[in-house]
């Protein structure tokens, strides 16, 4: 096997909010094209890891390397420009703007023209707008959003909003995609659609992904490797099969599922 540098290398990060340790000693790597999943009970620190990766929080210890760039201390918009995109556990769309405008915002860094060309709207501004609008149309096709194009996203059903947020991240043409609970709160049909899109992204676009998810079935079906977390610490990282059979994992996570889901895991 040829030696390829990992897309992402997270090394021993620790993040605490005065008193509460949210992430403690977490390390993992994500290889090109890989779908890496993070699971763990509520409050385990999964979202906090994403916030560290995308520059929203600065960890007290550890390092994050993304395509051989050190990300610690870098501001979120610079990290985005390097090719990291994410979706949020609680949808963070621009709810007054239309689907098209939300996706165009995903292409913010693919356009370079400034305020002066914007005023004139000729030449460069117009050219770049048209080219990027057509790229947005590709995302709309890919995620089957045609019928919603002109709606302010705040008016759309929850499942569609989740899809638009995925679209906004895809419009960035990222090298790494972070998905925070992409199917949380969705019905069976919406969950299946989302699973299909995640598979399509991997197969057709080859983008590496990190997915935080509660839906065990989905994680076990889709992920190449899984990291299980509890109380900010990683318990076990391995293939879905290895992880499922680990006694510590069963105790910490699956046990919790048994309790909360009334015995149905």
């Amino acid at each position: 096997m040829a030696v390829v540098n990992p897309v992402l290398e997270v090394d021993a990060i620790r993040l605490a909010f005065d008193g509460v340790v949210a992430v403690d000693g977490v390390s993992f790597t994500v290889e090109p094209g890989e779908l890496f999943a993070i699971i763990g009970p509520n409050g385990a620190g999964k979202t906090s890891i994403f916030n560290v990766l995308s520059g929203v929080y600065r960890p007290q210890q550890g390092s994050v390397r993304f395509h051989d760039q050190d990300l610690i201390g870098m501001r979120p918009h610079r990290i985005a420009a390097l090719g990291m995109a994410r979706t949020f556990q609680n949808i963070e769309l621009f709810s007054h703007l239309t689907v098209v405008d939300n996706l165009m915002l995903g292409r913010h860094n693919h356009m370079r023209y400034g305020a002066l060309s914007a005023f004139a709207w000729i030449g460069r501004a117009r050219r770049e707008e048209l080219a990027n609008r057509s790229a947005v149309e590709d995302v709309i096709d890919f995620l089957e959003l045609e019928q919603w194009r002109r709606f302010p996203v705040g008016l759309l059903p929850y499942g569609v909003q989740k899809r638009v947020e995925l679209g906004r991240a895809l419009a960035m043409e990222p090298r790494l995609l972070l998905l925070d609970e992409p199917v949380a709160g969705m019905n069976v049909e919406e969950t299946e659609d989302m699973a299909r899109f995640v598979l399509d992204i991997r197969e057709e676009l080859g983008v590496a992904m990190v997915m935080v998810e509660h839906d065990m079935g989905l994680v076990m079906d889709l992920a190449d490797r899984v990291m299980v977390m509890d109380f900010g610490k990683p318990i076990r990282t391995g293939t879905p099969r290895e992880v499922q059979e680990d006694p510590d994992v069963i105790r910490a996570y699956l046990g919790e599922q048994h309790r909360t889901a009334g015995g149905v895991a």
């Binding site: 995308s54 520059g55 929203v56 501001r75 979120p76 918009h77 990290i79 985005a80 420009a81 995109a85 994410r86 949020f88 963070e92 769309l93 621009f94 709810s95 007054h96 703007l97 405008d101 165009m104 915002l105 995903g106 913010h108 860094n109 356009m111 023209y113 400034g114 305020a115 914007a118 709207w121 501004a125 770049e128 707008e129 906004r168 991240a169 960035m172």
Partner: peptide, 23 residues
């Protein structure tokens, strides 16, 4: 334009605006 959309993004959700690359 790109600039006007970035304004709206800053107004509506600055966290989301920054993680999609708006300074």
């Amino acid at each position: 334009s790109r600039v006007g959309r970035a304004f709206a993004a800053v107004r509506d959700r600055d966290l989301a605006a920054s993680v999609i690359g708006v300074d």
